[in-house]
Design a protein around this nucleic acid. Structure first.
Lengths: 348, 348
DNA sequence: CTGAAAGCGCTAACAT
DNA sequence: ATGTTAGCGCTTTCAG
């Protein structure tokens, strides 16, 4: 006598409770039209036999999976993983499950299979959490032209007819450069991220704008680019120190590169902030413990994530309830400046 | 005339191709018993009408979802997110999709709903990627006693009858302490992680063992604990410097705390590595750019993830194919020592 | 308030 | 090599 390991299903519950499976269905869906006694009995049976509805079967018939697809890249970096952290907790609270897809790289092009897989698993909506890099949105646009699945984008240039949630990189970077000028620094260099990245371009533009608004002409010797890593920060900083020896301060486009840059400054025997002031971007948890502690721009990725999931669910559920469709719109969140010792030239 | 946005399904394809849906099913599953001409025709129709099979429906009937459940905690930290990064890419290559569940904290206790949700979505197997902390495995064990779903655990004490993939924290920490002694340091302090963590206990034990094997008696003044964060590293280091002023070197249980500790050492005007040698643990990417560059223990979380997914899929697929069941077993991966300046007292 | 019938989109197990 | 029948476990629709 072999014990078949079959899970209890709705029919079993119905049989034991002596009702039809529709009634069981009504109970598990909290529908009103069940008499209190029946409901109670069914619930007891459910408890007793350990019945758990199959989310799969429910999704198949009801066309709602309560599942969101999340597409992301670079999970091993702090930005994307913090973002994902915020997405998981907000989705969980709202009762949604997550299917995760990580692209092999930021500029990965073959995204059609990704979408098809998510759609074939009937996700109710998609969060596109891959930063805008190079042309990596182009195929996306084409692909989604006739897709009508709810979709929210993160970290890209806000555009008409789509929903984008992002930090305002431009205004954040303006805070950084303005702060250095206010501290009395005059010759502010710039260590940029790769300019294929939208975020990097925004930060670059802010540096240029603030400097020229302050009456300084930007030279090409006054900035260099890295690839966001500490290693590249070190390499690029060496180069910049050579080509712009008068530099008295620097805005670095992320904290990791700032760390590499600071190591080089130490090695050259210069003092931070006395000889060179440094401001980073992102406020990673470690930056408060750099030597010296790093002034930086605080991005609240958790908030981006939360808002994104909330917006996505709004779009999804307005569709279900036959409400007016939610108009596509973008939300820009404002970063803040965190002042620490690396830019505080005139403090004790 | 309203355009109903119904996706093309297997019946539509069958109708257009003039075959039964069974034949279409055979084609999309690459079954052998279809004539080449029929196969070709069906494929053409599929292409032409843009048919994509519903993964949901397939899972429901076939009892295989090609989906893995991943349970993890602390995604905003570098360890878990690197782990997840490795899991996504290995699963993707193997043709499996991921459902992600992040616990609100490492010692979260209410894990039953998590499992039920994963099982109700018919995952083929589960990766439990939450480090062993306090009693957070106790309920798990009870819960899974009669569950027969394939399951692989990460980062915990290997035990009989289950499959565990983990770094060997003990041997890694031995490398660290031994290295300091070999460099000629004598009074090696220890900055521990929270001892509720299995990993922390392993590293602690290694420090004690190596020191006593070298003939030194451990005093309680010679070590302190932090909570893995840089902030706690700074606080605890201050305390340790006071209670153990003769200390000439320190093994810190992770790189983040080492960063905080180093900031404090600088502030006290001591030199690294001349006055105090420092060794960390994890080899986070930034550690090579600390000031000075940090000697540390390299954990290959990517490899842990890869092995874990591969083992899980082996278990799953051996079940499908009716092969001999894979015996539960554990795999310990060996970390390595990365020497940098923070512990190199006798180098230029 | 409850139930019967139909079907979601697919595959398994038999036919032929 | 192909088709038929019967589901998977649930919800929807309609009847009563």
């Amino acid at each position: 006598m072999r014990q078949k390991a079959v899970r209890v299903n709705i029919n079993d519950v119905a049989a034991v409770a002596g009702v039809s499976k529709q009634t069981v269905s009504r109970v598990i869906n909290d529908r009103p039209d069940v008499s209190p006694e029946t409901r109670k009995r069914v619930k007891e049976v459910i408890e007793q036999v350990g019945y758990r509805p199959s989310a799969l079967a429910r999704s198949l018939t009801s066309k709602r999976s309560y599942t969101l697809g999340v597409v992301i890249a670079g999970l091993k970096y702090i930005g994307p993983s913090t973002l994902l952290n915020g997405i998981t907790s907000t989705a969980e609270e709202a009762g949604y499950c997550l299917i995760l897809k990580e692209l092999p790289s930021f500029v990965y092009d073959d995204i059609e299979p990704i979408f098809e897989e998510l759609i074939s698993r009937q996700v109710d909506g998609i969060i596109w959490g891959v930063s805008e890099v190079g042309e990596n949105r182009k195929r996306l646009k084409k692909l989604l032209f006739d897709q009508k699945i709810p979709l929210v984008y993160l970290t890209m240039e806000p555009k008409k007819h789509i929903t984008v949630i992002t930090e305002n990189n431009y205004s954040g970077a303006r805070l950084a450069v303005t702060h250095l000028l206010e501290q009395g620094y005059q010759r502010v260099g710039f260590l940029s991220g790769p300019l294929e990245w939208w975020e990097a371009r925004q930060r670059f533009k802010a540096w240029k704008d603030v400097m020229s608004e302050a009456g300084m002409e930007i030279q090409d010797t006054q900035w260099v680019t890295g690839n966001w890593s500490s290693a590249s920060g070190a390499v690029s900083m060496k180069k910049l120190l050579e080509q712009y020896p008068e530099m008295d301060s620097i805005f670095v486009a992320n904290d990791q590169m700032a760390l590499g840059a600071m190591q080089v400054i130490h090695e050259k025997g210069k003092r931070i902030p006395e000889d060179i002031g440094v401001v980073g971007f992102d406020n990673i948890p470690e930056s408060a413990y750099f030597w010296p502690a790093l002034t930086t721009i605080q991005q609240d990725q958790g908030r981006v994530a939360r808002v994104a999931v909330e917006e996505l669910i709004k779009i999804i559920e307005s569709g279900w309830k036959g409400l007016d469709p939610v108009d596509p719109h973008s939300i820009l969140l404002e970063p803040t400046l965190v002042v620490r010792r690396s830019s505080s030239r005139f403090q004790d």
